[in-house]
Structure formats: structure tokens, C-alpha cells
Write a protein that binds this DNA or RNA. Structure first.
Length: 800
RNA sequence: GCGGUCGUGGCGGAAUGGCAUACGCGCUAGCUUGAGGUGCUAGUACUCGACAAGGGUGUGCGGGUUCAAGUCCCGCCGACCGCACCA
């Protein structure tokens, strides 16, 4: 009989749906297991093989967990707000909600073809008012707890489109769409105070199981550093406060630098002899894009503030103050003390401006290069610090500064607060009103969801305001606090908002009175296993951890961390190892493969393609190998002899059960499939019984469920194979009666001998010595000692 | 520069310190089918040797530890990913 993959797959997908076999049953007698994949943005391009890799992998995990008897929660939904949809809507004059509806329908049909075991009863959609009502509710809670605030922030402004761009839309300093220059503009933005959680986000990485590279990236992004604030007196009267991680080098501070945006530059206007020059420099810096300020940073530029000097509190010396764009307003205090002898940037600047370079840590040659080593140097030219090591000197200096009230130990983070507003239409409206009398007033919770109104045009306005700002009858409202006239906030939330808590909504997707029921959250949280792409290991992971910690603080959830285990898959590249992209024309749709070979082949190949955590190149040739394998599995139907598991295969079958299970846990899907292939090869070599085949089908079912279901039925077994218990293995049965071991002489392989499993040391030695090739190699020499590794190897060491 | 990951056949890739190259692709030869971009069987790291028996060498390079190293340690070289004027 032919293996008709297409018919088989449609047949079983329909039956699974009819019997709702993948529903999370909530059975309290079962232990829960929550498997999560990142929900897709339903773009118009449809499903990509890149989606299939993580979905298939986690589908295997979810299926195995069900077979192991867990109450499995494996949901799917749509992260549907976002710019591509909005841009498509603008270009084609279709409502973004309609675009979203169509894209979701298309995506869902493609996902269904793959035979995934999602529980569609729990589908969520971030653009559904029943969903974003609670996204808005979380925002109000953040506002209530002082974690949302408004601030003036520089934003990306496209000079041609006349609109604000998200960072992702700025590519190499130009607008992604029109290619014109992008500059920074100040705009008032909603911000979320994620920095208040910086330390907990860092500390609690110890509570979770993430790959080391992911933890490292999170730590790096949070960027904790320890140092000190130091106050410098100035001739203008104001104190210049700087942050430094090297207070030990204070005696070597020969000048200071403030960032172009530093407020004193304006405050000192009248004192500056060269204000015009300074203002021109500042204006030039503002015009520079982020790209220019970072990429084209070879030459240090700056202007001295003539008329104002500072005093080094350690030396008492008068030192000049400069403005330069190598100092950022957004980190530390926006001003630095420059120690050119021991900081590369300061060294470059000092060289460019002919400033003195003083050595205060011995160990290098500061006239040649900055000496930045903190491990080996000792302090010199530093008064009371002389002779100390760097670490001691830091502590001594902080103590000295603190005693004089001139400084204090400070911990700093690179993490910045989250810019939470977008001047866009297709996002969650921020539920706030601006009242001239009361200020920013939250929309009452009872009025949520604050619906996104219908607008005539989704195009951004010339001023960079959201399209919502044109809707006067929506904007004009009544202040809920004083009853006076007020205006609605017209900015919307970023796409990150909806995805920062979606894992909670899956638990209780239809709840109309709470974001999630407390008892249900207690049952299903935390997510036991969350897999996603490396591109989300900083922002999405950090944002959702932040929101979850906040929800923990206000009692919505009871686990401090949302994800117990996080894993990451590698990207699927095109044939030549290049990234798949529309412009290269090398994008592969999983449905092409499903049409040609079937979903089971596609599922197997996407997992067999290589190490799950590494990038892998698509190979159309190699797909055939997986189809061939399934043909061979199918061919076993005609070969299966009656009978239980055959003694000849028992050991290998038990080993395969163990290996497939362990490999799934360790993301080694490729070797799990290889083990199944090897078992099938063995069945072809030495025959197969119905009992053998039965076990094979239960092991293969998570990977290739359709063919297994069909064969299960044809063999006359009852029920669904996907509901069978996962087979148990008996460690005692994984070993053969006899085993071939390696015989080495002096560490080199010389022969192999077959011994009874578990044979005693002396017996193995005797067997090895009886081997003709070993006698020949030894050539009369005596064996002075030997190392025997049970059932593996014996190594003979010969004397002279 | 900082942080992280990693270098194994023609290719994707396997190997708790214990027989390197499992499994798959590709390739070669033979058989099968009217034909084959089908299926089956055998072979497939390099090298000396007669493509034999039998040796030797092999996991980026150089050292080291060990009875034994792809695996552990030290030093190079190279690749990839993330961050980056973060004081």
C-alpha cells in the first residue's frame, strides 16, 4: 500500500479537531505543564520555515508531556498590532483591523496544515478589545504605582515622511521606507520606569533556567556598574557632579567634559566668552543622528567652555571644562571627569586638544596609550593613595570623598526607562486624559476598554502626532476628576505592550472581570518551558519579566518570574547560508514542503536539519531523506509479524526509548530522530513484530503524528496514538547479553573482543590477551598494568 | 573594545575523558523497473602498501595534563552573535 501522506494528514487533523484531543483539560489530578512559543505577528507574507522550527519543536515537547500524563497548556495567538499592518492599510486603503483579520485567517490555515497540537479554544489576539482592555488596565496600574510618567525625549524623525519612526525603522541612520535622513527631535513621551526593577531583573536571573548566552545578554543590557558620584566645584558657582567607576584615578583628572545637552551650558550662557561657538557645537550635535554619533566616532570633537573652570577636589588644581558629544546625557550625570592617563576616550580627546596626561596608576606608559588595567597597577602621584592597589584605592577615595561630603558610592545601570508611546494608529490607545486643571488623569477602569476609534485616514500627521489627534470628537472629552473639558491622549502603546503579558491571558482567555483568574494563574504559572528567538532575548524578555514582576508586586500573580525555562532556536537560513528574505527571493514556505511531501516530512526535516540552537541552512535535497524514512516506516506495516516486543530488539528498543526522551528534554531533536531512523534500519535488517512497531509508533508520534495515527489504526489498536502513555524503559533491559569492547595497547586501538556484559576484570584481560593481534602487538612484552572500563574498553600497558 | 558562542568527512551534523565521523544528504559501483530525478544492495576521512593482508596519520594551530583528549588546562589563529564613546 502506498503512503498517501496528504489524505492521511487531512483525515487525522479533522478527527483531532472533532474530538478536541488537544484541549487543556484542567484535570486537577494531573500535574500541569505550560509549553509556550512566541506568538507570531500575522504579517501578510504568511508562515515561514523560520516559524516552523520552534513551533514543531515545542509541539513535540507538548505532545510528549500529554503522553506522560500532564495537563498540558500549549496555546497560540496573535501579536497583531504593528507597523507593517498599518502601512499596508495606508497603502491599500483598507482598515488595519480588516488586514489583521485576513492575515490571521491565512496564518491559521497555514499553521493548521502542520498538524500542531495547539489548544485553539485559548487563542488570543492583542488587537481584540477584550484583550487590550487588560493591557490598558495594566498600564493604569503602572500609572497608579508611579511607574508610568511623561518626559521629553528625543525621537527619530524622518525629514521626508515627516513622521516619527520606531528605532527598528531606522536602518543605518536613514528611513527604512524612503531612505532619507533621520534626525532627533524632542517630543513628550510616556515612559515606564523599568529602571526601578533593574536590580531585581538582574538578581532573579538566578531563579530561572535560561541559556548562559541569554542571561549574559540580559546582564549586559541591564549593565550594572559600581562607582562613585564626585562633586567638582566650578568658578561659575554651580557644582558639577560626575559619575565615575574609577574614583581611584581622581588625582589624574586633568579636565572635565559635559554632554552637549547638559543644562549648565545654557545656564552659564552669560559667563561663557565663546557661547556662540558652544551653541553652534550643540546644534551640530543635535543634528547628528544616532548613527553618526556612534559609527563615525573616530575623531573626538568638542569646545572648551571659556570663562568657566572647575576644581579637582583631590589636587585643588584648576582644570578646564569642555563640551563634547562623546559624553552622553543619558548615562550617569551627563558629565565626566576626564582621566586621560587611564581612559582611552579621554586619552584620545586629550591628545586631540593638547591636554596634560598624568600617570596616577603605574604599570603602563601613559604617553603612548591609556593604561586601563585595574588588576596589576599601583597608585602614584596620588597623595594619600600612593602605593595602594586599584581596588584599595577606590575604597579609600570613596571614604575620603564621603568624609568631606564631596562624593559617595553609587551603582549605575545602562538600562533606561522604556519609551512607551508611539505616534501611530494601530496600537492600544493609552487610557489617559489631559485636563488643564488636574493634569494627566487616568481613564476610569470601568470605562475600559478605551476603544480605538474609526478614523478616516491612518496616515501620520505633519507634526508627528498620532492620526488619532485629528479625531476632534474623540479627543475632546470630559475630565473624570473635575468634570471640566479635557483632551484624550492620542499616542498609542508600542507593540511590546501586548506581548508583555499574553502568556497570562492564555490561562484564562475569556475572563471579563480580570486579566486572569488568581486560582488559574496559581495552577498554570510559571510557564514551564518557553522557547523563542535570540532576537527577543533582550527587549521582549526584559519587558515581560518587568511586567510580570509588577503584577507579582500588586498580587495578580504569585511567581516572581514568568518563565521557569527559556530556550532559543537558531535561525533558518537560505540554501547558501544567507538570511531568507523577500528581496533575495529565497524564502521557503513550509506549505510548499507540506504540499510536496506532507506535514510529517516537513516536521521531521525542520528538526533533523541540525543543532536546534544553531543557525541552519535550508537544503531541499535533504528533505527527501525524511520522506524516505517515513516511507520505510510505512513499509513496516506489511512486514510486522504477530507478537509482542521481540527479544532480539528489546535492548535496542529500551535504549531508544531512553534516548528519544532525553534528547527531547535537551533540545536534541536531530539525534532523537537519528535514533528512530537507526531503529527502523534495524527492523529492516532483522525483522519486526507488531509489538516492536507499536513502541516505535508511540515514540515517533510526537514528531510525525499523522502517519503514526494511521498506522496505529491499521494495526487495529484502539483510540488515538497521541493519547497513548509514553513508553517506559527499563534500565536493566537496555543492555545486551554480550558487548564488543575495544582493546588498546598503550592507548592505541589494536583489536576488539566480544565479552559477556558485565564480565569481570580478569576475564576481560584474559580474553584480550588471547586475541592473536594483541599477542602480536605485545610481541613478548609483559603487561605491567591495565585499565578496564566496564563494557567499554580495556587498555593494556606493556613493560619493556 | 566588552560580553557570549563555536571551529570535526564533499555537505548538514554525531560522540557522560574511553573504538572519532552515529543518522541523513551527496557521490561511486552493481541489481531492479520499459525508462528514471524510483527502489534495493555494497562502498565512501587521508595516506603508505597492489585499490590485498597489514601499517601510519587524522577533530583550526602550538604546547600541557592523563593509561587514554574532539572533549580538560595554557597560548595563538579564525568565524559567528549581541552590546558598544555607558565614563
Amino acid at each position: 500500500m502506498q503512503y498517501e501522506s496528504r489524505n492521511i494528514e487531512q483525515k487525522w487533523q479533522a478527527r483531532w479537531a472533532r474530538e478536541r484531543v488537544y484541549r487543556t483539560d484542567g484535570d486537577p489530578k494531573k500535574e500541569k505543564y505550560y509549553v509556550l512559543v512566541e506568538f507570531p505577528y500575522p504579517s501578510g507574507n504568511g508562515l515561514h520555515v523560520g516559524h516552523a522550527r520552534p513551533y514543531t519543536a515545542m509541539d513535540v515537547v507538548a505532545r510528549r508531556r500529554r503522553m506522560q500524563g500532564f495537563d498540558v497548556l500549549f496555546p497560540m495567538g496573535w501579536d497583531a498590532f504593528g507597523l507593517p499592518t498599518e502601512n499596508y492599510a495606508i497603502a491599500n486603503k483598507i482598515h488595519p483591523a480588516e488586514v489583521t483579520r485576513r492575515n490571521i485567517a491565512f496564518f491559521k490555515s497555514q499553521i493548521d496544515m502542520m498538524g500542531y497540537s495547539f489548544d485553539w479554544d485559548r487563542e488570543v489576539n492583542t488587537t481584540d478589545p477584550g484583550y487590550y482592555r487588560w493591557t490598558q488596565w495594566i498600564f493604569l496600574k503602572l500609572l497608579e504605582h508611579g511607574l508610568a510618567y511623561k518626559a521629553r525625549m528625543p525621537v527619530n524623525w524622518c525629514t521626508s515622511c515627516k513622521c516619527v519612526l520606531a528605532n527598528e525603522e531606522v536602518v543605518d541612520g536613514v528611513c527604512e521606507r524612503c531612505g532619507s535622513e533621520v534626525v532627533r527631535r524632542e517630543k513628550s513621551q510616556w515612559m515606564l520606569k523599568i529602571t526601578a526593577y533593574a536590580q531585581r531583573l538582574l538578581d532573579d536571573l538566578d531563579l530561572v533556567e535560561y541559556p548562559e548566552r541569554v542571561k549574559a545578554q540580559q546582564r549586559n543590557w541591564i549593565g550594572r556598574s559600581e562607582g562613585a558620584d564626585v562633586d567638582f566645584a566650578t568658578t561659575a558657582g554651580e557644582t558639577l557632579r560626575v559619575y565615575t567607576t574609577r574614583p581611584d584615578t581622581l588625582f589624574g583628572a586633568t579636565y572635565m567634559v559635559v554632554s552637549p545637552e547638559y543644562p549648565y551650558v545654557e545656564a552659564w550662557r552669560d559667563k561663557l566668552e565663546n557661547y556662540g561657538e558652544v551653541a553652534a557645537y550643540r546644534a551640530a550635535a543635535a543634528r547628528k543622528s544616532d548613527f553618526e554619533r556612534t559609527e563615525l566616532q573616530k575623531e573626538k570633537t568638542g569646545v572648551r567652555l571659556l570663562g568657566v573652570d572647575a576644581v579637582n577636589p583631590a589636587t585643588g588644581g584648576v582644570i578646564p571644562v569642555f563640551v563634547s558629544d562623546y559624553v552622553l546625557m543619558s548615562y550617569g550625570t551627563g558629565a565626566i571627569m576626564a582621566v586621560p592617563g587611564h581612559d582611552e576616550r579621554d586619552w584620545d580627546f586629550a591628545r586631540a586638544f593638547g591636554l596634560p596626561i598624568v600617570e596616577v596608576v603605574a604599570g603602563g606608559d601613559v604617553q603612548t596609550a591609556a593604561f586601563t588595567d585595574v588588576e596589576t597597577g599601583t597608585l602614584v602621584n596620588s597623595g594619600f593613595l600612593n602605593g595602594l592597589e586599584v581596588r584599595q584605592a577606590k575604597a579609600a577615595m570613596i571614604e575620603w570623598l564621603a568624609g568631606k561630603g564631596l562624593g559617595r558610592a553609587v551603582t549605575n545601570y545602562k538600562l533606561r526607562d522604556w519609551v512607551f508611546s508611539r505616534q501611530r494608529y494601530w496600537g492600544e490607545p493609552i487610557p489617559v486624559l489631559h485636563c488643564p486643571a488636574c493634569g494627566a488623569v487616568p481613564v476610569p477602569e470601568t470605562e475600559l476598554p478605551l476603544l480605538l476609534p474609526e478614523v478616516a485616514s491612518y496616515e501620520p500627521t505633519d507634526t508627528g502626532e498620532s492620526p488619532l489627534s485629528k479625531m476632534r470628537d474623540w479627543v475632546d472629552a470630559v475630565c473624570p476628576r473635575c468634570g471640566g473639558p479635557a483632551e484624550r491622549e492620542t499616542d498609542t502603546m508600542p507593540q511590546w505592550a501586548g506581548s508583555s503579558w499574553y502568556f497570562l491571558r492564555y490561562i484564562d482567555p475569556k475572563n471579563g472581570t480580570a486579566a486572569v483568574d488568581g486560582a488559574l494563574a496559581r495552577r498554570y504559572m510559571p510557564v514551564d518551558w518557553y522557547n523563542g528567538g535570540m532576537e527577543h532575548t533582550t527587549l521582549h524578555l526584559l519587558y515581560s519579566r518587568f511586567w510580570h514582576k509588577f503584577l507579582y508586586d500588586i498580587g495578580v500573580v504569585e511567581t516572581p518570574e514568568p518563565y521557569a525555562r527559556r530556550t532559543s532556536h537558531g535561525m533558518i537560513l537560505g540554501e547558501g547560508g544567507e538570511k531568507m528574505s523577500k528581496s533575495r527571493g529565497n524564502v521557503v514556505s513550509p506549505n510548499e514542503i507540506v504540499d510536496q511531501y506532507g506535514a510529517d516530512t516537513m516536521r521531521l526535516y525542520i528538526l533533523f536539519i541540525g543543532d536546534f540552537e544553531k543557525a541552519a541552512s535550508w537544503s531541499p535535497q535533504a528533505v527527501k531523506g525524511c520522506r524516505r524514512f517515513l516511507e520505510r516506516v510505512w513499509g513496516l506495516l506489511d512486514r510486522a509479524a504477530p507478537g509482542a516486543v521481540s527479544p532480539a530488539h528489546e535492548a535496542e528498543i529500551h535504549r531508544t526509548i531512553r534516548k528519544v526522551g532525553e534528547d527531547i528534554e535537551h533540545l536534541k531533536f536531530n539525534t532523537a530522530i537519528a535514533a528512530l531512523m537507526a531503529l527502523v534500519n534495524r527492523f529492516y535488517e532483522t525483522g519486526v513484530t507488531r509489538g516492536d512497531l507499536r513502541v516505535l509508533l508511540t515514540l515517533l508520534a510526537p514528531f510525525a503524528p499523522h502517519i503514526c495515527e494511521e498506522m496505529w489504526e491499521q494495526l487495529g489498536y484502539k483510540g488515538f496514538v497521541v493519547r497513548e502513555p509514553w513508553p517506559a524503559f527499563d534500565p536493566a533491559k537496555t543492555v545486551e547479553d554480550e558487548v564488543e569492547i575495544a582493546v588498546q595497547v598503550g592507548g592505541k586501538l589494536r583489536a576488539t573482543v566480544v565479552i559477556p556484559t558485565g564480565a569481570a576484570d580478569e576475564d576481560v584481560l584474559a580474553a584480550a590477551l588471547a586475541e592473536p593481534r594483541i599477542r602480536k602487538t605485545l610481541d613478548g612484552r609483559r603487561v605491567v598494568r591495565h585499565i578496564y572500563v566496564k563494557d567499554k574498553l580495556i587498555n593494556l600497558i606493556a613493560g619493556k
